[in-house]
Amino acid sequence: MLRRTFLAATAVIGLSIGFVTPALAVNDLRIIAPAGPGGGWDQTARALADVMTAGGATGITVENVPGAGGTVGLAQLIDQEKGKPNVMMVNGLVMVGAILTNQSAVNLGMTTPIARLTGEYEVIVVPAASEIKTLADLVAKLKADAGTVAFGGGSAGGTDHILAGLVAKAAGADLTKLNYVPFSGGGEALAAILGGHVVAGISGYSEWAGQIQSGELRALAISAPERQAGIDIPTLKEQGVDVELANWRAIVAPPGLDDAQTKALRDAVDAAVKSDAWKKVLADKKWTDLYLPGDDFAKLLEAENARVTEILKTVGLVQ
């Protein structure tokens, strides 16, 4: 009880005069969202900050460092925040691709991995009027001539592009002829698909859920390992295309932390993720829980990097 009161008192002091207690890494934490306000990474950073604050941590702030698939934020984390035990940054699969295409001097292997947090599965869609009725039709078209199947989606080398590559490869199509058209935002890609300007579209499920439900878009497949509750879309795997891909979001810390500092951050995130407040966030935002802490997450980073590098090399975006 006494401890509680003391903590509350420090919290009040901390809030009013910005008091810094370096011993407690979870306080005065800065979470970098390497994107502008409103997007997925920003929402993840702010949700985590809220949950940690609700759990008693004080002085947590979110800092937006947008640009270039998050690589601008990554460069800051590695160059300027090195060795700081009270900084973390949200990242995700998109960053893995952006690092490669940007020929970035820094990469995620240089960071201190904390944990994978959430994710979302991707869907492949065609307009309602399309002659392509099933994934098999799309695969057949890809095999015949991959160049004629223009995919519309997000940034070059991003998750949507990677999935297009993985699917074409699994389908046995000529990957060097993959025809992927990057659009600047979900809206523009959606318009191009609805208007029939591209053959198929790829995006995170939630972005186009409304159009799929209303029947304007036909979802051919979802990139999940198994069917998802409440989403009536068959997986790629059950239709014979052996691909699964989650657009995951994770959190990392700067390089140069000692074991105690790393453990403090991992414990703080672990506590936050296991709280009811986080479960409520996941339910509210319809995020899939993909929590994967510590060394397992580090291994995943390596595996994803290898897989993405191979695909982007084959399609020619990376040397």
């Binding site: 270039a68 601008v72 800051q76 940034s155």
Partner: peptide
């Protein structure tokens, strides 16, 4: 200047990360 939308390659960035934007 910045990341080329169609190919994701850096263009006229001169090695400055912030220029990628």
């Amino acid at each position: 200047a910045g990341t080329d939308i169609l190919t994701g390659q850096p263009r006229l960035v001169f090695g400055i990360p912030s220029m990628l934007r």
